[in-house]
Every structure is written in C-alpha cells, then in structure tokens.
C-alpha cells in the first residue's frame, strides 16, 4: 500500500454541497420542462380549466375568457415563467388553476400523504426483501435461493399497476379484507403500501443476497472466523455492517423507483398524495400544481439520496475516490 492522498477531515460538507447543487439542477430542469409544457399546451388551456371548474356542460367561450383574464394566461409566457421562478424563491407556489386554493396548502397535505405511504412501503420492502435476501444467501444456489430468485424475477416483471390490480382483486374484492380505494381509516393505507413495498422488495432481495454472499466470502470474514469468533458474532459484527455499506447506496437508486411507484400507486388507489395530484394536474392542465408537485417529487429523490450519502459516511470510514500512490 502506498500513501493515501489526504482527503481526510470532515467529509460531510462536501456531500451536502454536492447534493445541494444537484437539487438546484433538478429544480432548473423540472421548471424548464414545465415551461416548455406550458408553451406547448394543446387546445385552449383556459377552456379546459374552466371545464374543470364548472364541468364540461356549463362551459362556453365567455367562461373561458373570464378564466383567461383572471389567471393571466393571456400574458407572454416568459413573464409567467419569470414570475413563477421569482415566486419559487419566496416559497410562493401560486394558486391552483382549478380549485383556486394556494398550492402550498394543498402540497403540504399531499406531501404528508406521500411520505406516510413511502415510509411504510420502504419498511415493508426492507422487511420482505432484506429477509429474503439474507435467507437466500445462507446457501447460494440452494433451493431457497432459487425460490427467491424466482420471486425477484416475478416482481421485476410485474409493473406496479398490475401488482396493485392483483392485490385489489385478491385482498379486497375476493377476500374482502381491506378497502380498495380512498383515505378512510388506517386500513386504507395497507393496499397501496403493500403494492409499493412488494414492488420494491425484489431489488432489495437481490442486492441484499449478493452483498451478503460477497461479504461472507471476503478475506476479513474468513479471518474473523479463524480468530475464533462464533458464527453469530461474525454475522452481527462483520457481515451485517459491511452488507449495509453495499446495500445503503442502492436505497438511493431505489428512490427514483419509489417515486415512480408513488405516482402510479396513488393514482390507482386514489391515495391523496403528490403523485395523485400530479396526474390530476397533467389531466386538467393545472400548471401551478403540476410544476409544484413535480418539483417536490424530484426533490424528494434528492433528499433521499442525501440521507443515503450521510448514512454511508457514517457506516464506511474509507474516503471515496482515494488514490494510492506507489
């Protein structure tokens, strides 16, 4: 081994700066996309919004004109965009074009819904996937391992909306155990969370299994055993921690999958969250809600990744990108 270049000191600020820069980049890309969307909106957005507000039957040209003037949709696009970006800095996200309520208020509610769902789903995924992975790794290529591999493949090939439909059919319609849609009572979160959690558990299981197998084969685990440690101590002290070092970064990758799943599952189960709001906003061309919910969802990914980075720093003392000098 040679010298290790001095990347020493506290590594936390570097990580935070990098993620903050990513957050700004994400915000810019999302808002730019939204801007293009606004410019290219098909048909007459005002007409559509008026329809959303009053129903298709009651809309005429006059109602649409009134909406247009009221919302400033007749001004140049760049003005609207600049205004929105400025407002963003003041955390003023505007009002919904459909319900006329401040977006911030609605967003808060949706964010809570999405976070509840995500946390429960991640916990389920960790429980199911992590458990299966550890069990499969006990005997690589054994019967259990093959079964788990089959589970992983099946879950991977099943898109969330199909999985959700299957669960609704089975648990709600056939067995009548759980409510299918809506947001009433604690039981209503079970189906959406289960759908998301099962969907995520596949990758969890695979990464856990591979990581545990690799760590168990490593020189340091073998050496720990020959030091005279019992199998249980080796597992608790060496295998699990090092598996975490491999596994946790994958959670960051999962964040994107999680948010995609949130969009689908919330729409499917009419769960009041950001994804549900986003799909509705796309359908009704409600630009402020669309921009805001897309932005918050994307920033959620960055936030999750930041959390992951900080956890990895805590778990793994090695500097990243170290350079050995011979």
């Amino acid at each position: 081994m040679g010298l290790v270049s001095a990347v020493s000191g506290n590594r936390l600020p570097g990580v935070l700066v990098r993620r903050a820069a990513q957050g700004v980049g994400v915000a810019l890309v999302v808002s730019a996309l939204c801007f293009v969307v606004v410019r290219a909106l098909p048909g007459d957005a005002a007409y559509r919004i008026a329809a959303g507000r009053y129903g298709y039957d009651l809309v005429d040209a006059a109602a649409a004109d009134a909406v247009r003037a009221e919302l400033g949709l007749d001004r140049p696009a760049w003005q609207q965009y600049a205004e929105w970006v400025l407002a963003l800095f003041r955390l003023d996200l505007g009002e919904s074009l459909v319900t006329s309520r401040p977006v911030v208020d609605e967003l808060g509610l949706y964010l809570v819904g999405t976070l509840q769902l995500s946390v429960l789903a991640l916990a389920l995924a960790a429980l199911i996937g992590g458990g299966l992975g550890v069990v499969a790794a006990r005997r690589p290529d054994g019967a259990v391992d093959r079964l788990v591999t089959g589970w992983i493949a099946a879950v991977r090939a099943l898109p969330p909306f199909l999985l959700g439909l299957l669960l609704v059919l089975l648990l709600s319609i056939q067995l009548g155990w759980l409510p299918a849609v809506g947001h009433e009572g604690a039981a209503s979160i079970v189906l959406p969370a289960l759908t998301l959690g099962i969907g995520l558990s596949g990758l969890f299981a695979r990464v856990t299994r591979d990581a545990v197998v690799e760590v168990r084969r490593s020189d340091y685990v073998r050496f720990a055993a020959t030091k005279g440690l019992s199998g249980r101590v080796v597992l608790l002290r060496h295998v699990l921690r090092n598996t975490g070092v491999v596994l946790v970064p994958y959670l960051g990758v999962q964040a994107v999958t999680l948010v995609e799943g949130v969009v689908v599952v919330e729409s499917l189960f009419a769960w009041p969250g950001l994804g549900h709001a986003l799909v509705h906003a796309v359908f009704w061309r409600d630009v402020p809600v669309l921009q805001a919910s897309a932005l918050v969802l994307a920033l959620l990914v960055v936030a999750l990744n930041t959390l992951v980075d900080v956890t990895v720093l805590w778990l793994d003392p090695r500097p990243r990108g170290r350079r050995a000098v011979a």
Partner: peptide, 25 residues
C-alpha cells in the same frame, strides 16, 4: 456530467408525464 446529475434524480415517469402533458392527447 452536471446535466446527467440533474436528470438522474428525476424519475423517468415524471419526465414522460410532463412531456406528454404538452402534446395533443
């Protein structure tokens, strides 16, 4: 790399949703 850093954090479905919002159905 900067561009990809921003893009990688944005869920694919989000971008597709946004882009598909701009076109005639």
């Amino acid at each position: 790399r900067g561009l990809s850093e921003a893009f990688v954090a944005i869920p694919a479905l989000l971008v597709v949703l946004l882009v598909s919002a701009m076109a005639p159905e």
